[in-house]
Write a protein that binds this DNA or RNA. Structure first.
Lengths: 147, 147
DNA sequence: TATTATTTCCCACTATTTCCCACGTTCTTT
DNA sequence: AAAGAACGTGGGAAATAGTGGGAAATAATA
């Protein structure tokens, strides 16, 4: 169960350290990186990736415009990456660009996968969606309670 | 039943003491800390956290915009923290920042979880929401009575 | 084929985290 | 009131995390 939010930097070679707390939750030393929804990258343990991509493909005949779109956005950009001895991965340049990563990044775990954001992109994402978040939380008030 | 309001200070290393009265109500010596709604942090006993986060994840595919937002705001920042021998926890830097904690903090128990606020943030929160509080209290007047 | 550029692997340094201990203050008990 | 226990705070040292950079290996270009 991967959670926790961290701030690390891309170095000049395009490498970034996966925070050790997150790393500890990842089996093996390879991950699948791909373009996420919203301006970020998604990192999956190979197992999780297999499940997700299989599901995406099932629902997805190449004759459906939407399916093709999903496949192209999520599946096509996926690459396997290895953790080096220091626990870093090399971000493929094309993905670095699509996510708008510059130097300072936010990494966080969402239970089953890890997201990587540019710090500023994430800041403005949160800002733009603040009202929507408050609404969503308010709605939860009706169905989720602690007791 | 965790209740009571206390004022403790973060030290230079980002540690804060959980007041012993609150600590006494916590089973074990680990808590889950995450970003709350409004500018504060929430501390849950692992059990409670599991329940809450499972509920949040239920309705939550990464392909729903609203679900992603909730996951990013509530689930992603969550981290397990251990109480040290003195009964303190280390506030992860990213959370310290999101909650705007400086030094003096308010800790209070709300039945099943603990909130941590920066003293000043909390003061202005109360001020800003005073009217709304009065209204809410008024509404309750119709349905809740002490006897 | 020689030369240059890029990638991969490894090592090293610094900052942060973790673990432990210590001290003054406050509360409780006798 | 005195003594002891527990509470709240601080800090030092060892271990680990995070970052940078050089050299070897591979790929690209002329």
């Amino acid at each position: 169960m991967i959670t926790g939010q961290y701030r690390n930097a891309l170095d000049d070679k395009g490498r970034i350290l996966i925070p050790s707390r997150l790393r500890a939750e990842v089996p093996g030393n390879t991950l699948v990186i791909t373009s996420g929804i919203d301006r970020c990258l998604w990192l999956f343990p190979p197992e999780e990736w297999k499940q997700l991509s299989d599901k995406l493909m099932e629902a997805a005949s190449p004759f459906s415009r939407r399916a093709r779109l999903l496949q192209r956005r999520i599946i096509a950009p996926a690459q396997e990456v290895e953790l080096d001895k220091a626990g870093r991965i090399l971000i493929p340049p094309s993905l670095k660009e699509t996510a708008g990563l510059k130097k300072e990044c936010i990494l966080h775990g969402i239970k089953k996968y890890i997201e990587i954001w540019d710090v500023e992109e994430y800041g403005s994402y949160l800002q733009v969606h603040e009202d929507e978040f408050q609404e969503a939380a308010e709605e939860l008030g009706g169905s989720v309670s602690f007791f």
